[in-house]
């Protein structure tokens, strides 16, 4: 597959490396014509306000929304999760998203950088080591959204990995740990439609 990584800002290089390591062609996407070339898209970690601002400035907002509506598989980590959310809490004034997953995501839900953490996590029965950086969590989901992993805090249990159809989102950054299992789950299960 040709995997595009939205390369406006953030750790897109690490996602390019992950896609290549998993045996796929990986391309940067900064323009509508580059988006048209790819079979699936990864939205990297970074600053969601910056990425949304640049996507709007360079006319990527509607083309990405259109591709999502027509079934392109998309995986978003951290800022990417925010960008895939239909609704966000604690965004900046008027902050836009691409949307696609019927969920409400709370930005910086785990706190500021001093609260950023790494932790072991059960992802679909697999034990993962996950890195959370000023991470969001999923506050509320629609009926068609499947929760793949959760983290417990004093306020309760929060979804940190979800899937709806061919859209996958994680609060954490598998691209930072060199562990390809989440990326492979996206490429092999979500993109192929092996799971519905």
């Amino acid at each position: 597959m040709k995997i595009g990584v939205l390369a406006l800002q953030g750790d897109f290089r690490e996602h390019l490396v992950a896609a290549k390591s998993a045996g796929h062609a990986a391309l940067t996407v900064r323009r509508p014509e580059e988006l048209a070339e790819v079979d699936a898209l990864i939205l990297p970690g970074g600053e969601s306000t910056t990425i949304a601002h640049l996507a709007a400035t360079f006319n990527l907002m509607e083309p990405i929304r259109d591709r999502i509506k027509s079934g392109m598989p998309v995986y978003g980590s951290c800022a990417g999760m925010i960008l895939l959310a239909d609704r966000i809490i604690d965004g900046s004034d008027g902050q836009e998203t691409f949307g696609g997953i019927d969920m409400t995501v709370r930005r910086n839900a785990f706190g500021r950088q001093v609260d950023s953490f790494e932790s072991d996590l059960d992802f679909q029965g697999v034990n993962l080591h996950a890195v959370f950086i000023r991470a969001p969590w999923v506050e509320e989901i629609g009926a068609s959204v499947e929760v793949l992993a959760s983290v417990k805090t004093a306020q309760g249990s929060h979804a940190v990995a979800v899937r709806q159809g061919r859209l996958l989102a994680t609060s954490f950054h598998p691209e930072l740990t060199g562990d390809l299992r989440v990326h492979r789950y996206f490429f092999d299960q979500v993109c192929t439609g092996a799971i519905k």
Binding site: G10, V114, S116, F117, S119, F132, I133
Partner: peptide, 19 residues
């Protein structure tokens, strides 16, 4: 669960890249 590790500190800078 660990806060303030080298990985989360360096990882924060990774998120600023290209900015």
């Amino acid at each position: 669960e660990a806060v303030g590790t080298a990985r989360v500190k360096r990882g924060m800078a990774e998120m600023l890249k290209g900015g």
